[in-house]
């Protein structure tokens, strides 16, 4: 089960466009944006133990940077997206350097304040950003849905590979050690502030990359992207899919994104439902709903397999 499951997922993701066209393919394209955000955010929250409320804001920085560079700078889209990721990383470095020296909830406080101010800034500077109307952005290959989908899938796989590599590297080991016992790690000579900063900057850069992708597949970026509600959505996806695993969080994102489509009739109740879902998940299954469902499925399979005649 442990080996078959990821292989099945990869196959399903690769074949998805052959079975679903137009509308659901578009849902998949947006789902991949959230999958990148949720998996990188859960890396930060789950593996490092840092709660940042600026993940949606970093996506916004990536989106606007990339969009403006393509429109005014005449850069090609892939280069501009990379620049967007870099911009998010630089801002992340600034915020991280300021807040990660202290322990406690300073990062969460500052990032929440930052994303609110960023929203105000984007709305107010309408000569540059078109304000709340939103900025029209050139699409990847004129918005060919297949190309968009596989671009998103490639970026998502890139995110998973880089972050998994980071977790299994020496840095990841030290990060987990710090999460479990910060004083212990510090006593053994780990520069805790520097490693936390690395994790924060890297995950923020992926948020920026996701933002650039979003800008060039949707074709419109607006201050709505950096709303606190959007951050709540990323949090809901990660918590629902399980903070401890990158893939779990990504599946949570895709699951909730699909659920959103079915909840369209309850349009305005949607985020309230998700909020309640997160509260219930945190209270009754803090490791996430999907990991728990997976556990039950695995147990059921084992029992069923052992009962079947050989």
């Amino acid at each position: 089960m442990k080996r078959i499951f990821p292989a099945l997922l990869v196959l399903a993701a690769l074949l998805f466009p052959f079975f679903f066209r137009d509308y659901w393919l578009y849902v998949g394209i947006i789902g991949l944006y959230y999958a990148i955000l949720a998996s990188s955010w859960s890396m930060l929250a789950g593996q490092v133990g840092l709660i940042s409320f600026a993940h949606a804001a970093f996506a916004g920085i990536g989106a606007y940077t990339s969009a403006l560079l393509v429109i005014h700078g005449g850069l090609s889209i892939p280069l501009a997206m990379a620049a967007g990721a870099l911009a998010a990383a630089v801002v992340g470095l600034g915020i991280g350097a300021l807040t990660l020296r202290m322990r406690g909830p300073y990062l969460a406080l500052t990032t929440l304040a930052f994303s609110e101010i960023l929203r105000i800034f984007i709305t107010a500077e309408y000569q540059l950003t078109q304000g709340s109307i939103g900025l029209k952005v050139p699409l990847i290959l004129d918005g060919n849905k297949l190309v968009c989908y596989y671009t998103g899938l490639a970026l998502f796989v890139l995110t998973l590979v880089v972050l998994t590599f980071l977790i299994h590297s020496r840095v990841g080991l030290l990060l987990v050690a710090m999460r479990e016992d910060e004083d212990g790690a510090a006593t053994r000579g780990v520069d805790t502030v520097a490693y936390r900063l690395i994790a924060f900057v890297v995950t923020s850069a992926f948020a920026g990359l996701a933002g650039g992708y979003y800008a060039h597949v949707v074709g419109l970026v607006s201050p709505q992207m950096v709303r606190i509600g959007e951050m709540g959505l990323i949090l809901a996806m990660s918590v629902f899919g399980g903070l401890e695993s990158l893939l779990g969080a990504a599946l949570g994102a895709i699951f909730l994104q699909t659920l959103t489509e079915y909840l369209r009739i309850f349009a305005e109740w949607r985020l309230a439902i998700f909020g309640a879902l997160v509260l219930f998940t945190l209270k009754f299954a803090p490791e996430g709903i999907l990991p728990r469902a997976y556990l039950y499925a695995e147990r059921f399979m084992d029992r069923w397999l052992s009962r079947a005649p050989r």
């Binding site: 606190i228 709540g232 998700f274 909020g275």
Partner: peptide, 8 residues
Amino acid sequence: ALGIFLQN
């Protein structure tokens, strides 16, 4: 999450 819930 409580804040998001109450707001929405």
